[in-house]
Design a protein around this nucleic acid. Sequence first.
DNA 1: GAAGGCATGTAATGAGTTACATGATTAT
DNA 2: ATAATCATGTAACTCATTACATGCCTTC
Lengths: 183, 183
Amino acid sequence: MPEPRTRKLTATSYVVLGMLSYSPATSYDLKQWVANTIGNFWAFAHSQLYDEPARLVADGYVAEEVEEGGRRRRTYSILPPGREALREWLSSPTVDQTEVRDLGLLKLFFLNFGTRKDLLQLARDRHESHRERADAYEDQRTEIVDYADRWQVKTIELGIRYERCVEQFWSDFLKELEEEDLS
Amino acid sequence: MPEPRTRKLTATSYVVLGMLSYSPATSYDLKQWVANTIGNFWAFAHSQLYDEPARLVADGYVAEEVEEGGRRRRTYSILPPGREALREWLSSPTVDQTEVRDLGLLKLFFLNFGTRKDLLQLARDRHESHRERADAYEDQRTEIVDYADRWQVKTIELGIRYERCVEQFWSDFLKELEEEDLS
DNA sequence: GAAGGCATGTAATGAGTTACATGATTAT
DNA sequence: ATAATCATGTAACTCATTACATGCCTTC
């Protein structure tokens, strides 16, 4: 008789376990927190935050409490095995390479099948978009710096650096293109 | 009778269409090209590069030629509607936000549930890993700069900037941590 | 008390991932 | 000739995405 195979947890799993480590929450709470924090880098559809806690309950990492009457809302809280799984993950080596899923980058890669106009448009759009995102992160950092925990602030700081770096790239690129168009 | 709904193409679709715009190819060829170029940022499982061309054939964007005898390998080539779809995509606005799927970042975010040791380990690992990746990109750039097309080189240059930026982040962070440990 | 938006969830579909499988080719 | 690795593909499964559906609360 084979052991009941425990599934391999995904990034989504750890996001849920991590959030629940701060406090019990409903899926909606998770959705909110995620949207304002790591959801900025790594998007999760709200239905994932409904599905994943249910799976974690089945795995025995999380407990579910169903509200009596009313909407019968489900509140999840982390159990000791869940905390343990999170700790283990935190202390395991991080082998996977970072992925940067940027449609702008993809388009640039294939842009010799497009027009010069497309290119300029792309560069302007992306420049603008990364600038806005960087500004938003800076505001967010100011808002949370006094009470959020230290590593979360660091996370945003990396986001800021990243966005500024990409903003700069597009800006330099744009300048290069515009100079060419003059001559 | 409703029109046969044309599906919405995904990033994978455009990668295949883009690659096939350069030349006809088998799935294996695609796999190779992708692995050495955009696959660095955005990973595609090899099976996706077998599935997606088949879908594009069904959609009428791509033609398939099956080798007679032997392995009956399938070679794909782009058709005019495929080129058109790619052009349209290239000239459409890029609305989706960039996603940075970085497990290191996720771990940092939740690191107050881990130990200081984990934190140092993480910072060292990630620093090293991003440095290596940046070095690799630089080599790659040198190799291709003379014959690859211009926007592809730009793509790598963005990769280099990105990796250097993140490398710097972890390096600064590490320094900060090590100074604390002394006092 | 009606409208609009926020909160809460499920279902259907499609895509991505992993594992499996085996045919060619090259090196020894 | 055998082993090893490269090339080629399919199947099963899990996940993610999208669309749908409706309850609840506020505000006018």
